[in-house]
Design a binder for these strands. Structure first.
Length: 395
RNA sequence: UGGGGCGUGGCCAAGUGGUAAGGCACCAGUUUUUGGUACUGGCAUUCGCAGGUUCGAUCCCUGCCGCCCCAG
């Protein structure tokens, strides 16, 4: 029996990680097609958009590897699904996480669908995370899969639907670089089609070393950071392009006006800098009122508004089964924040719900310890050991 | 205008005759696929102004300017 050579479309950003991803999959015998997703190309004041450079770097690597290469233009959808969402959220007084939305809507929906329609069997990205498939196609297995008896067979949910594959999302071997926080909204169906070989690397140095060994053009390229399209411009300058702001009062914990800000939209809970108010102890933002255009701050690091152990989530998304009531999970309320143990209570919703969509559904999280600066608009991601259960948007 | 106090970088604030602590803010860098946090570094040739005493003054003296408090 001849095994069919599977075709995998690799999202290549022009960085090291996705370059190595493509190289590894080629080495493993896949037919690899590199794809550069053009999500944003507009220059912003002070900073030209680096998309051409990134595209060329990706292309260069593709040529080196001898793989096909193409570009998908998602600018319109990206603008609509990610940028507009982000701006609207900020205007509503929340602090959104555009990269989570980018993964949900663009990389693991639009890109996936486009690739599948374009001849792909699978897609791959350079994320620091691991997918585990039930189909047996995957060469990547979660290390603790067999070691943790508690999880047992629950790990890969059973179903009657023979056509849909099943998959789980697991944290990267390199816990420091783990990016599952940005991926919790990806669907199981998408994960079942996704490979993330970089998730098996224990250090970034190993990734770079491999890139260097393979002679990839991107081996020494500096890590990118910041919102992909905003780059180094900064959220402040970016937002200013789209919304008009007015100065307003900054009030301390006693209600005293201690300064003036240039737009409440620019501030987020827990923020310290940018207030331009000095005089003794540092001030931290504990809240804001978009209606009044006021920002509230405190010098008290123990201020009750800065620490929360109960949070409500909306727009929840569970990759596999919803969390079990009464069970203790680990919760992360912001990227790279420490995990905090807690229990999840799913809110009863009267409205009908198909199993595939959990939007509108809410839940409550009860943490064993208070965490700092829980912020509306940010996500709380729930883990069961190494497995990502899902999460929701903080209300 | 009587009495007392004070005026040190954007803010708070030590110093008090030997050549300007510290904190906040700000700036830069590090960390980071959000925002933020955190970490590291930078940041007053100058102490309200003008004179004087002194080898030497932010610190002593005089005058002026400004502020605050009490008294009235």
């Amino acid at each position: 029996m001849v095994k069919k050579v599977e075709t995998v479309f690799v999202g290549m950003s022009g960085g090291v990680d996705s370059s190595v991803t493509a190289a590894l999959l080629k080495e493993q015998g896949y037919r690899v097609v590199g794809v550069y997703m053009k999500n944003w190309s507009q220059d912003l004041p002070g900073l030209p958009c680096p998309w051409k450079q990134d595209y060329q770097d990706a292309k260069r690597v593709a040529v080196q590897l001898g793989i096909d290469f193409k570009m998908y233009d998602f600018e319109k959808e990206y603008r609509h699904k990610v940028v507009d969402y982000m701006i609207a959220e900020y205007q509503a007084g929340r602090t959104p996480n555009p990269d989570i939305m980018c993964n949900q809507e663009v990389k693991f929906k639009l890109f996936l669908d486009t690739a599948l329609a374009d001849g792909a069997d699978l897609i791959a990205t350079g994320h620091y995370a691991r997918t585990v498939h039930s189909s047996g196609n995957s060469k990547f297995q979660a290390p603790n899969l067999v070691l943790d008896p508690d999880r047992g067979s629950k790990q890969i949910p059973k179903t009657n639907d023979q056509n849909s594959k099943h998959a789980g999302l697991y944290v990267a071997a390199n816990a420091e670089k783990d990016q599952t926080y940005f991926l919790y909204r990806v669907t199981e169906q998408a994960l079942a089609r996704t490979l993330m070989p970089i998730g098996d690397f224990e250090t970034k140095d190993e990734v770079r070393a491999l890139a260097k060994k393979l002679g990839l053009a991107t081996a020494a390229k500096k890590d990118s950071q910041g919102i992909c399209f905003v780059g180094k411009v900064g959220i402040r300058d970016f937002l200013s392009q789209y919304v008009t702001t007015k100065p307003g009062a900054i009030k301390d914990q006693n209600g005293i006006v201690i300064g003036e800000h240039d737009g409440a939209i620019f501030y987020t809970i827990g923020q310290r800098h940018g207030l331009d108010v000095g005089g003794g102890l540092p001030y931290y933002v504990i809240g804001k009122d978009m209606q009044k255009n006021e920002v509230y701050v405190t010098t008290d690091l123990d201020d009750e508004n800065l620490w929360k152990n109960e949070l409500k989530l909306t727009d929840v998304h569970w990759i596999n089964d919803p969390p079990e009531e009464g069970k203790t999970y680990q919760v992360r309320t912001r990227y790279r924040a420490p995990l905090t143990p807690g229990k999840i209570k799913i809110a009863q919703n009267n409205t009908h719900r198909s199993t595939s969509s959990n939007r509108e559904e809410r839940c409550e999280v009860f943490l064993e310890e208070s965490v700092r600066a829980v912020t509306p608009g940010q996500s709380a991601v729930i883990y069961d050991g190494d497995r990502v259960v899902g999460g929701g948007i903080v209300v």
